[in-house]
Design a protein around this nucleic acid. Structure first.
Lengths: 353, 353
DNA sequence: GTGAAAGCGCTAACAA
DNA sequence: TTGTTAGCGCTTTCAC
């Protein structure tokens, strides 16, 4: 073989992929009949169905999704917009969605909003233009994404995942309050009493709800309520906020809850470099169970998000809504799972990895 | 404005998006003329062009990519298949590609092969079925992915990125040998002499080439050649291989090169827990500059991949090939960049972050 | 139960 | 320069 692309498997579907006409011709029927046979319509005699199927298999025929899309106005395609593909939570979510979609024969148009509401709106618009059959979106901003989401929801089924805006669409969210209670329970079980929270002030729904949940849980504990620091979801913010704890003149908290793993790790690094022992002096908990958590020193106790379930349910909702467009929007709330590692005292290890 | 989506530009495409017929009717011309006017064909009088453009703008018309795809056999869409979206290198690559494509008005179909050659082949097949205009692929396996890549390359332009198989397509790769020389030079500059390498035996091209590069660089150093351990690209393997170094009875190396950041971090954790000081006793270097590297303790010296460039160049190659299908396949090799952090001695910090 | 015909939106080829 | 025609591949009436 001198050339990397020689003659290619002898004529097999060579230049032009087989169309339904080819199949029909080979089976000796009209294309419409072939179409019906392949789509499992029951108005076709069993013999013909078999003949058509045989012909299709022989030609290695598969429907051209573009022809079908043009005819049906449906493209066999779902659009997904994530706020930030480099936030390690989202690749996991993308994989879950992609896999669930492929199980249903649907393709995924992925767009990354790069944390920008403007880009997000553009991408949604382009996806609609491409006649996606549905959209799965994790909106950048609980307020400013609303308009674009509403516009999209007026055209195709939309499922919001993880992050949500106040637009009536289907949604799959995570129970932030339950998550907070689980974390606090875990820490209290080892005797911790002086709590602090480092979180994000960004306007996305999980951040907002995590803060609300913390405030609710500690409604009777003014100290804990005072020890809240609001920044963003980065390592750097975690480090800086921990610095503030160290230099504040106050005694350190013995339990530090962080709104995500990155904050937790940044804080943990800063505290340890200042000689604070984790978990002996301060127990630290993150959220997301990104791969970082296992890598941290010590490995970080965190709350795993049910990404697989989120993906499955989002796709299921999309399909359900295609069948039943007039159902009331459903909101599904899933539970995260506490993953105990070494950054919290060990008596209550719930799961170890 | 009481409602965010009030009447919408007067009947304009409300239920039904405007078609080129609507534009043509409004402009008082034939649809074909409208099409020509909008596509910038020069056979249309300037007045008509303006009239059509005005009509299009008024109706907020944009071409229906599906109609165009059916007619032209081109979909305005590029497929991308990554071997493992949860490997933190690939989300960065996906973002780069997605952004470069959108700059050109192209959409991205993303597929994840989940490290399986079988899934990879299926996804490629589905993408071809969807009439993608091109494919950007990072093949799972340097051998076993060849057939699927070759089949795809027979149908549409293909650019291989990062990982490659021996099929003549355009490709954007990273110079593994140069990378190894930079790493070794950096370590030798601080006096390190006893080198070891922990790498992956997986059959993807960068892994293969990294091993070859190490062997070439240390061709005259039997000790360094002997201190090679081959496993996979995980934290766990790094930890295990480091354990072997510790228990081998041999003196420890003073410079440990790892094929990626995960291996490096796994190894570093194991060594430090055994009381080995990093970088005083052993300097450690990873590859990829994933976010993990900054998070590690101590922060890890590593080699950043030029993902932004890879994405840009891959898209550029795709477009070039669409225009010039018969050019010889080009292979572009880009350089990584050493990012010195605290896991190697500090005299030669090239960049700090 | 099956074939015929029409048309989704677009544009290339041809005709005027 | 512009309009007409035709057809990409598919499915869905509507006849038979």
């Amino acid at each position: 073989m001198r050339d990397a692309t020689p003659e290619r498997p002898a004529g097999a579907g060579q230049g032009r992929p087989p169309t339904i006409k080819d199949v029909a011709a080979l089976a000796g029927v009209h294309p419409a009949t072939a179409s019906r046979a392949l789509s499992g319509a029951r108005t076709v005699s069993p013999e013909l169905v078999r003949a058509v199927q045989r012909a299709a298999r022989k030609l290695n025929y598969r429907v051209n999704p573009i022809g079908r899309a043009l005819k049906q106005g449906a493209s066999g395609t779902v659009g997904m917009v994530v706020p930030d593909i480099e936030n390690p939570f989202f690749p996991a979510l993308v994989r879950a969605v992609e896999s669930a979609l492929h199980r249903e024969g649907l393709g995924l148009f992925l767009c990354d909003a790069n944390n920008s509401v403007r880009i997000e709106a553009e991408r949604l618009d382009e996806l609609l233009l491409r006649h996606v059959d549905g959209l799965i979106i994790s909106p950048v901003d609980a307020e400013r994404s609303a308009e674009a989401v509403r516009a999209a929801a007026g055209r195709v089924p939309v499922v919001q995942v993880d992050r949500t805006v106040d637009v009536s669409t289907d949604a799959v969210a995570v129970d932030q309050h339950g998550m907070m209670e689980a974390v606090v329970g875990h820490l209290r079980a080892s005797g911790r009493q002086r709590f602090a929270f480092i979180t994000s002030g960004e306007a996305n729904s999980p951040s907002i709800e995590r803060l609300a949940a913390y405030r609710r849980v500690f409604a009777g504990d003014p100290g804990a309520l005072a020890r809240v620091q609001v920044g963003d979801l980065t390592l750097e913010w975690g480090a800086k906020a921990a610095g503030t704890l160290l230099s504040g003149g106050e005694p350190l908290p013995d339990a530090l809850i962080c709104a995500n793993d990155l904050i937790a790790i940044g804080a943990m690094q800063t505290l340890r470099r200042a000689g604070v022992r984790v978990p002996e002096d301060v127990a630290i908990v993150g959220v997301d169970d990104t791969p970082f958590a296992r890598v941290a020193e010590p490995p970080l106790t965190t709350v795993a998000q049910p990404v697989g379930q989120i993906g499955d349910e989002a796709v299921r909702m999309l399909l359900t809504r295609k069948r039943e467009p007039h159902l009331a929007p459903r909101r599904l709330t899933l539970a995260g799972q506490l993953v105990a590692r070494d950054s919290t005292p060990s008596q209550l290890k719930l799961r170890h990895s």
